[in-house]
Design a protein around this nucleic acid. Sequence first.
RNA 1: GCCGACUUAGCGUAAUAGGUAGCGCAACUGACUUGUAAUCAGUAGGUUGGGGGUUCGAUUCCCUCAGUCGGCACCA
Length: 579
Amino acid sequence: MINIKEDAKLSILNHSCAHLLAQAVKHIYPNALFWVGPVIEEGFYYDIDLGDITLTEEDLPKIEKEMKKIAKDGKRIIREEISKEEALEKFKNDPYKIDLISRMDENDTVISCYTQGDFTDLCRGPHVESVKELKNFKLLKVSGAYWKGDKNNQMLQRIYGICFETPEDLENHLNYLEEAKKRDHKKLGKELELFMISEYGPGFPFFLNKGMIIRNELERFWYDEHTKEGYEFVKTPIMLNKELWELSGHWYNYRENMYTSEIDEKTFAIKPMNCPGGMLVYKNSLHSYKDLPLRIGELGQVHRHEASGALNGLFRVRTFTQDDAHIFMRPDQIEEEIIRLINFIDRIYKIFNLTYTIELSTRPEEKYIGDIAIWDASEKALEDACHKAGKDCKINPGDGAFYGPKLDFHIKDSLGRVWQCGTIQLDMNLPERFDLTYIDKDGSKKRPVMLHRVIFGSIERFIGILIEHYAGLFPLWLSPIQVNVIPVNNEYHLEYAKKILEELKKHNIRVNLDDREEKLGYKMRESVMKKIPYALILGNKEVEASTISFRKYGTEETITMTIEEFITKIENEIKNKDN
RNA sequence: GCCGACUUAGCGUAAUAGGUAGCGCAACUGACUUGUAAUCAGUAGGUUGGGGGUUCGAUUCCCUCAGUCGGCACCA
């Protein structure tokens, strides 16, 4: 996955291509008006006002054709610098450009225009020398987009595209998009019978048996690892009195996204977060400075009313399970605890062959609570911990939550796509609101520092990411079916196959016996299509020698050994979580 | 929520300038008795997403609702 925006040369190319797109659109739709056409990670887009005309994907080839035609003409792209006055005059019939220009400050911005043939656009540039250089592009999709990104404004039409230097690069990218489509977790989830979503519950996924196996394995792994890290666990209620949400501040901030119900004439809300419940757990007993840090984990199922248009498979749902934990500590423990957490998260992601980067989001410009000095100290603590854990951390200024700064973990999957999963957030709000305290050495009550953190983020979403990351071929420890036992001929080998099956089951290996009256080739094909890691083939040879033969998914060779050897091999692979 | 596209059997799909739907896989039945990606034959399976309208007649055209997808906005 290439990030166009981060490549200087490709940025220019794509930016120029956006102008070419606009020119072509103008040729076909002379009344078109243009807003902005920036470069993004995935290429470029242009926001266009076409009045009553609505574009669909079917219109893209036509526009592409016109772009190719213009590019072939090979007009030079000419830069011209003009004054604000001249700019306003030049674009006087274009309300969008007027809007842009009038907000420019002549003193620190050079206003420039680029002209190619019959098309001139306001633009800071730079651009390629000539439209001739724009050859290897493709328009990808069209959609609506609010003007200035504000939902109160009208919608413009946005056309997305991408441009490369060589035909090979373009082809590679299109292949990459194809590959991503093949791995789509919604498609694989259906094919592999992992989960379903009924129209009776948009955004409320059902986990099917095979998906549940993956989920249970992940959760067991999560509990095991957290136990090793000194966590204790709780389960807080799904639904609590509205007053609690008023106290936590969620009612005020997120009321629109909360599901509620009336119980005995009182309003209850289904939890959109686990923290308020976690606060009550903390307050349930007195805490000594000696007991800190206190790490309380919860796989907590939350519900949030997400906009219908936001829903997307397991990636964006209305109920999901956060692998949550709240850590309460003394101020002097912050750095050590964060380092510990970073190392912990690092260990977890490595198991899945996921690399990642860390970003530090700092205090928002305006909407924040608490002392700037405490913010600064907290941010420094997070950054220092990051460095001491041997990790780089990119600063994301102003992107913190209103209640505290955070470290976000952006994982990169096998296709190079980036997903934000883990997060460590310092919270300066809730301990105050809930008046959390611990008893310090001197017997006085002190306010603990509190962290929220998740590693998977949402179990549902993480499973979605894993499906795409592994393209449905899960590592053995997560595979719903680990071994497919195939007798060559039921009449002669079924009895032996059943014996082997029982042997595998005794060792808690997840097995399937394919005892259908079908040819070996037929069963092998299905075994591969179902992405079962191991196919055991049992025929005359194996029965006579009391052995088993297996073929590992993705390999051509067949290996023969005793069942004991095979079980040891499988058990080791599961234990080591081999990929 | 907004813009657009889409919704045909369990799954994947075809078709009708408006005349009540085909195919493949899967399922089921039977024959075949098989050594590494599809043995053959047969059977059954559909109010063409729901509702409404236009029409002699709608799966096809129109309206509406729901859902899905691609984006936008949102994402504690």
